[in-house]
Design a protein around this nucleic acid. Structure first.
Length: 649
RNA sequence: GCCGAAGUAGCUCAGCUGGUAGAGCUCCUGAUUUGUAAUCAGGCGGUCGGGGGUUCGAGUCCCUUCUUCGGCUCCA
């Protein structure tokens, strides 16, 4: 007999060799039906795998992330089976589960696949699922495995096998399909009741641009048809929040082929929104002791040779601008830091001057690959809310922590709760990609890790994500359809001060090297606005929104009164407009609601007589009549209250 | 840059197997003077992304190029 400890702490004595499935059955039939996999001593197993020793057991169902993953991983195998049956001879690379669904990378050989074929694959998958074939796990020796895949002429699986240790290799078979796989899997295909192929895309084999491009097929499956339908509806809803769609509808920004791809044009409403964000940041920075600077958009090549940017990106940047007679070469600035270094150098510095914090909304230009451009989140010209802090080594941690506070202040004010703080370090395998000594990198990394810890941030570490001159603390958020973007970033840099030979005189009257902190809480205004649009689905908070109110006269007779109301509100510091179109009130309400105007002020005979406005709140409807000053006060209160609540959180 | 898909009026989209472009909204004009999510009528508006080809004839077929979309690679 062995002892099985369940998550609630209860212990069950069962025969040696009992499966998790059997344990589930002993608890309840319903549970047994819903078990997809099991966590045995912290490792996810097939639920029909025999447990031979005392173990901690957690049964995994659709409600557990790991249960879902197992379900989707098995679904990837099912899709592969369908593909193999429909397109004999296709070769498979890897097919992992994702946060939502799964994909399989396949080499289609001579076959082609278009979205028109999706339904065929889905139908086949469900047909195979209905056969309720078991996923059969089979440990196999490395030599047998090699023989098996050699016979199958499966180059990709042989490549995978090369890196696996003998004794640790398993095959899984369901129906006609056998795959090299460590598992785990669900018991049988029958629980997969709904399947959808989502899209196809190219993906380099092993992610290397030099390799063949495989076809990556994305899909998702569910144990209930209803869940698939709900998922697809949610997907549609998410698409409605897409900043590219809302940006067009709300007239925030546009692009022009004539101007050039990846170069956003900010429309008046988008500009008003952006300017409010800038103002918010300027105020916060002024309070935190930052000093404003302004630098030009181009600089001599020599500046970037000094910083190291030229060597690193020169060939992959916009090419130089040449002067007609002197033969000078200028580059569009890809970063503000070299300029700021030169400002630091413009005067001798004392240890008493530090830290010095230079802030600039600096517009930079980077050559991004054609296929990379994406709405406002990935562009070729953008403005960073950039600042560079020059400090003494003993000030680094304090300054870094203060910057974290600033970033969190911004996120808090805008209600971003779903972010991760990512510590981006060097790729230890490829140090040649970076400049600077190991010693400096160690110092910088240590400063970041300690500061993040001191601030109690929940962090993840990513190797190979550092900037070429130093490690970063990046704040990552997700967009409407789940893609991750970097917003705020803070970087500790011991290297550029060396390259620029920055100095200050210490209390010992000796020259010392300052440490630089690069930081941008928004990251880029473009990307930040994009994520903000998606975050609030275009319904911006009252303090930011380009238009806080729209006055809707019942008929043309009340346009004059509307004008009077607007003048009064504007003089009280509000912003809005009059919808004086020759339309009925219902139409005006509908249009302004769709434009996501926070307050609609209906004015007719009654309001004009009483010097009031009938207030209608976005999403809520009529909330009654208020005096004009009274309404302004209400707006002010909402804004104040918004901020107050944020401060409390 | 690579793989795949798509580009028709300002916007959203229709246009069968090639026969010479259409709707709704927007905009303009007129009527209406409106009370809480679409008033009615009329009108303007497209060299069907650009270029080339096949054909008696191309939005429709082929090639090429640009842009956009989904990924991959990249991201100071």
């Amino acid at each position: 007999m062995i002892k099985i400890t369940l998550p609630d702490g209860s212990i069950r004595e069962v025969e040696k060799g009992t499966t998790s499935q059997q344990v589930a059955l002993s608890i309840s039939e319903g549970l047994a039906r819903n078990v997809l996999a099991a966590k045995v001593n912290g490792e996810v197993w097939d639920s029909n795998r025999a447990i031979e020793t005392d173990a901690k057991l957690q049964l995994l169902t659709w409600n557990d992330d790991e249960g879902k993953s197992t379900f989707w991983h098995s679904s990837a195998h099912l899709m592969a089976e369908a593909l193999e049956s429909l397109y004999p001879g296709v070769k498979f690379w890897v097919g992992p589960p994702l946060e939502n669904g799964f994909y399989y990378d396949v080499d289609l050989e001579e076959n082609t696949l278009t979205p028109a074929d999706f339904e065929k694959i889905e139908t086949k998958m469900l047909e195979l699922a209905r056969q309720n074939n078991a996923y059969v796990r089979k440990p196999i020796s490395k030599s047998d495995a090699i023989k098996y895949f050699k016979d199958k002429n499966d180059f990709y699986k042989l490549d995978l096998l090369e890196r696996l240790d003998d004794g640790n290799i398993t095959l899984y078979t369901q129906g006609e399909f056998t795959d090299l796989c460590r598992g785990p899997h669900i018991q049988a295909t029958g629980v997969i009741k709904a399947a959808k192929i989502l899209n196809i895309a190219g993906a380099y084999w092993k992610g290397d641009i030099k390799n063949k491009m495989l076809t990556r097929i994305y899909g998702i499956t569910f144990p209930k048809d209803k869940e698939l339908k709900e998922y697809l509806v949610a997907l549609e809803e998410a698409k409605k929040r897409d900043h590219r769609k809302l940006g067009k509808e709300l007239e925030l920004f546009t692009f022009s082929e004539k101007v050039g791809m990846g170069l956003p044009l900010w429309l008046p409403k988008g500009t008003m929104l952006r300017e409010r964000l800038e103002r918010f940041m300027r105020d916060a920075q002024a309070k935190a002791g930052y000093l404003p600077v302004i630098t030009p958009h181009i600089a001599l090549k020599e500046l970037y040779i000094c910083s190291g940017h030229y060597e690193k990106y020169g060939a992959d940047a916009f090419q130089p601008i040449n002067t007609p007679t002197e033969g000078e070469q200028f580059f569009l600035k890809p970063m503000n830091c070299p300029h700021h270094c030169e400002i630091y150098k413009s005067s001798p510095r004392s240890y008493k001057d530090l830290p010095i914090r230079y802030a600039e909304f600096g517009t930079v230009y980077r050559y991004e690959q054609h296929g990379e451009l994406h709405g406002l989140t990935r562009v070729r010209g953008f403005t960073q809310d950039d600042a560079h802090l020059f400090c003494r080594p003993d000030q680094v941690k304090e300054e870094f922590c203060k910057v974290i506070d600033l970033v969190l202040h911004v996120f808090n004010a805008l209600d971003f709760k779903d972010y991760t703080a990512q510590i981006s370090l060097r790729d230890p395998e490829n140090k040649a990609k970076y400049i600077g000594s190991d010693e400096n990198w160690a110092l910088a990394e240590q400063a970041i890790i300690e500061s993040a810890k001191e601030k109690g941030l929940k962090t993840v570490v990513e190797l190979g994500e550092a900037a070429f001159y130093g490690p970063k603390l990046d704040f990552m958020v997700k967009d409407a359809i789940g893609r991750k973007w970097q917003l705020g970033t803070i970087q500790v840099d011991y290297n550029l001060p060396e390259r620029f030979e920055l100095e200050y005189t210490g209390s010992d009257n000796q020259k010392h090297r300052p440490v630089m902190i690069h930081r941008a809480p928004f990251g880029s205004l473009e990307r930040f606005v994009a994520v903000l649009i998606e975050h609030c689905a275009g319904s911006f908070p009252l303090w930011l929104t380009p238009e806080q109110y729209a006055i809707l006269p019942i008929s043309e007779k009340f346009n004059d009164y509307a004008k009077k109301v607007m003048d009064e509100l504007n003089s009280l510091g509000l912003r809005g407009s009059i919808d004086d179109r020759n339309e009925k009130i219902g139409k005006k309400i509908r249009d302004n609601e769709m434009n996501k105007i926070p307050f609609m002020l209906v004015v007719g005979e009654k309001e004009a007589a009483e010097n009031k406005v009938a207030v209608r709140e976005r999403g809520k409807g009529d909330i009654g009549a208020l005096g004009i000053a009274e309404f302004a006060k209400k707006v002010e209160e909402v804004i104040q209250n918004d901020f107050k609540q944020k401060e409390l959180n």
